[in-house]
Amino acid sequence: MMVYRVMLVDDEEGIGKALRRLLATTPCVYHGVTYQLQVEIFTSSLKALERARHQAFELFLVDYRMPEMDGVRLLTEIKEIQPGAARMILSGYADLNALVGAINEAKIYRFLAKPWNDYELVSAIAEALAYRDLLVEGERLADEARVAKGTMSAEDGERKRLEQLEPGITQVKWGPDGSVILDDEFQLPDDYA
């Protein structure tokens, strides 16, 4: 059975902990499908971004107002790294700028308000995961078709698959001075199976 990785980012520790409890005690179900979740919590958006460079997640749920980097910027960066993941914002307050940014730049799936309704939140997560699965499956089928039709090489198809498992693994990043940027530490996450 597939385990879905969910990253929660909120500078407020209590939020992360409460969400972890919620997701541990409440089954995440959509249309009869139960999604098994594995939750990681971050209180720093920079650390969260760093983690996202090394570990694929199926869903990111982030706060909007955070000191180092706000939620829209964080999700916009993450979208570059893991375009296939579902993105949601959970915020205590949002002005119009935040909403416009969230929709147009970070292209989020849902915008949830604090305080949230537990049931709605879990349903939204399940829904987002189902939607993501649908997109991924559609993409996979399309790629298969492309490979079959010869419009895509088998290597490209494989690269795409790998990229989804280990973001950035197939790419070399060039710094502004032309140097190759290496991740400062290359290590597998603890729970990497």
Binding site: G14, K17, A18, R21, L22, S91, G92, K114, P115, D118
Partner: peptide, 19 residues
């Protein structure tokens, strides 16, 4: 600022009570 500051604790306390 105030809304954010209020909604955070209300959010997690509310959820914690459910748990």
């Amino acid at each position: 600022g105030v809304a954010h500051e209020l909604n955070n604790p209300i959010g997690f306390v509310h959820s914690n009570v459910n748990t």
